[in-house]
Amino acid sequence: MITQFIKSREALLLLAIAIVIALVSTRFPDFAAPANAANIFNDTSILIMLALGQMVVILTRCIDLSVASNLALSGMVVALINSIVPGLPVPILLIIAISLGMIMGACNGILVWKLDIPPIVVTLGTLTIFRGIIFLISNGEWINAHEMSASFKAFPRFELLGLPVLSWMAVLTVIVFAIIVIRTPLGRAFYAVGGNPHAAVYTGIDVGFTRFMAFVIAGGVSGLCGYLWVSRYAVAYVDIAGGFELEVIAACVIGGISIAGGIGSVGGAVLGALFLGIIKNALPVINISPFWQLAISGSAIIIAVAVNARSESKKGRVILKKAEQTT
């Protein structure tokens, strides 16, 4: 078990993160101090959650480019509701946000499932459609902090056992995803569908429905993050989280989730997101311009995918018995 872990992707990432933290700590000793670490985690929470949602989609050999638009639309809707009915309690807004996200995910899923349209095309389309709808419902105007109720803004910041609710949300999402992925038949079906769709049919798994469910789950997470994003930054407008979908996919790829489907873990996705989050927070600390961040995450993606490919590369068919023994 231990040797297996040492060779695993998660261990490699943990090592990379440790090296980054160690390097930064030489310049700025408090970087890894609990308070700062908690800050970084809180800052990365939304990325972690979205990466988990994206992970289940990628596991089934699909991709969801619409997550950031979904987030922005869900966020705008709850912000609008809040500005019109300030008295509505936050749990109801959470339910609305999650449901809305799931509906949008279901739109993607149904097009992939029933019409068999390639996921990249579907979500490329819904990416622009969702974004456009935000403009229609908001008239292109911003919803600013003063239009939001106090409880609306306070929720993600509320501290519980030393951590803000936003962080707890991420922790909760990680736990829920770990259970879904490891302990439910649907979770295992994600792996089966992505790893070998042909064989999945033989074992009685409905490939299309499984993909549909992955999109619904990813949509639900985006909806939740929509509320959290808008309330955390206390502003909602058309372009929030623009281009964030690529950062989410980057976190997944760095976390060892194979774009070809069937390979990946909750731990990997979380570490991939944390890696990006730590880099982002480390740059200003060590006086490197934050403008380096994009290039660094780009390089990380390329290195990660090259490493993935190497570990996934298929061994040739072993016919010679002698050769079989030596390997």
Partner: peptide, 30 residues
Amino acid sequence: LVTRLGLPSIVVTIGTMSLFRGISYIVLGD
């Protein structure tokens, strides 16, 4: 990256997308 190393082009170019634009940001900043 795609033809020699056999990597999937969609991921490779998501990576180089960040890398290329990232270099522009490093050079120009704001």
